[in-house]
Amino acid sequence: MFTSNRLLRPTHRTAEKMLTYECGVDPVGEGWAQSHVRYYVYAYLYVIFAVDAVFLFPWATVFGGLGWISVGEMGVFIGFIAVGLVYAWRKGVLTWT
């Protein structure tokens, strides 16, 4: 299938077809751009809390049949997350300046 597709398709190479396409904007300048490390920290914190939500939602849906031991374990889990959030807040990671 791939070979027949390659043999049967029309091929007209033009300068516009060979140009790099990036969201409808013509490429100008170099491809190198620096980003501040702050954006990576925010992305990292987002991933951490998104993974936490992945663990919290299924636990919350079956909360009725788990018992108090499970509630304590989830409290410890949320406590670790809270300590990490307070640490990041105290270090000034969450300020946007």
Rank of each mutant, 00 (worst) to 15 (best):
F57P: 00
Y42N: 07
P10I: 10
I48R: 08
L7S: 05
T14P: 06
Y44I: 07
A50Y: 13
G31I: 00
V71Y: 06
P27I: 00
W59C: 03
M1I: 07
S4G: 09
V37Y: 03
H12M: 10
K91N: 09
T95C: 09
L94C: 10
F77K: 02
A53W: 09
T20S: 04
C23L: 12
A50H: 02
G67T: 05
G31H: 02
W89S: 13
L56S: 06
I81F: 01
Y39Q: 09
D26F: 04
M74Y: 04
E30Q: 01
M74T: 11
M18L: 15
G65T: 02
T61M: 12
G29D: 02
L19Q: 14
F63W: 11
E16C: 02
G24V: 01
T97D: 15
V83A: 12
A82E: 03
T14F: 03
V28W: 02
V51P: 01
Y87I: 15
G24E: 01
G79T: 13
Y87N: 09
V62P: 00
E16A: 14
Y21P: 01
V71T: 13
T14H: 05
P58D: 03
W89K: 07
K91Q: 14
T14S: 15
H36M: 04
V25M: 02
T61K: 07
T97I: 11
L66I: 07
L8Y: 06
G75F: 03
R38Q: 11
Y40L: 14
T3Y: 08
L66F: 06
V51Q: 10
H12W: 09
L19I: 02
I48V: 15
H36W: 09
F49I: 06
F2H: 04
T11K: 13
F63P: 01
G31M: 02
E30D: 12
T61N: 05
H36Y: 04
V93C: 09
V41Y: 12
L56F: 11
N5M: 10
F55H: 09
F77D: 00
P10M: 10
V62L: 06
V86R: 04
D26I: 08
A60L: 15
W68I: 11
F80P: 00
F49A: 01
V62D: 09
K91H: 12
H12Y: 13
K17Y: 08
G75T: 13
H12I: 15
M74G: 01
S4C: 03
G24D: 02
V51S: 10
G64T: 11
F2D: 14
N5I: 11
A43V: 06
V41F: 14
L85R: 02
F80G: 08
T20A: 04
R90Q: 12
F57L: 12
S70H: 05
V76W: 08
F63R: 14
L19N: 05
G31Q: 01
E73I: 13
I81M: 12
V93Q: 11
L7Q: 07
L8T: 14
A88N: 05
F49V: 05
G67E: 08
L94Q: 06
C23F: 09
I69C: 07
L7R: 06
A82L: 12
A50C: 11
